[in-house]
Amino acid sequence: MRVIIEEMRKDLKILLAYPVEIAFWIISPLLWVVPLVFQGRALIGGLQSSAFGALAGTSEYIPYVLIGGIFSTYMFTAVWSMGNALRNEMFYGTLEHILSSPVRPLRILLGKALFNSLLSTCFVAVQITICVLFFGLTITLTKILPMVFFLILLMIGLYGVGFIAAALTLLIKEAHGVLHLFEYILFLFTPIRYPVEVHPITRAVSAIIPLTYALVALRGILLGVEFDFARTSLILLGIDMLIVPAGIWIFAAIERRTKQRGTLAEY
């Protein structure tokens, strides 16, 4: 546990050493969420859309998109931050020193993931506050506990995805292209901006992505859209139980491969 805390503390101190980066984390929640509202207004001219309601189970298009946009932050920070975590250590010149210590790399990655989850939570909290204050989103205290429950289930699964992203970086080094592709695929196949029921393929692929179920649950909780609490949580738990061991296994296999090929510290 101490390693994880020290990893988080180290990453925080490095972040604080870059003032522009802090400005980004303060301003970007607003910049991220407002275009979604404007997009909704431009498309449907108000908050309601009956055509949209037939697909999504709720006719409240803007709140639907806002929830998708806000909570997908966790997905994208998991992919990007964990994908780039080892890349940054390569640039610092510290990767080999970390990997020659008696700590399993996954604990270090977990520290980085938790730090980024905390950052994402701050990011999301600011966005929700903006939406509550300016765009009519309502949150009651009774909604917070189930929201946190599903967010924890979501984050566990995302750590599995993050381990895979970190492994990819270890393997191909410059993983920006792949991570972008990963991001676009997630955008395409998860109900962030539209219901995946819009096409049979999106509906099929979305079934294996944890964010899909988390968004169904969060929209259910926040917008009152009907959803099966037990079934959704069990599916999320099941995906977590598959994706986390898969991420760990893939990372270990790729770490071993890089140690065999001597490409660990290569840029």
């Binding site: 490095i14 610092y92 510290t94 080999e96 020193h97 970390i98 020659s100 210590s101």
Partner: peptide, 28 residues
């Protein structure tokens, strides 16, 4: 083992000596 290599890039430049040593003490 303790591993020492030549060259400068084996520390976190944005941290202080105490912070660097504290971090590696935790790792070990």
């Amino acid at each position: 083992l303790g591993v020492l290599t030549g060259g400068e890039r084996s520390l976190y430049w944005k941290l202080t000596p105490v912070e660097n040593l504290n971090y590696f003490a935790a790792l070990y």
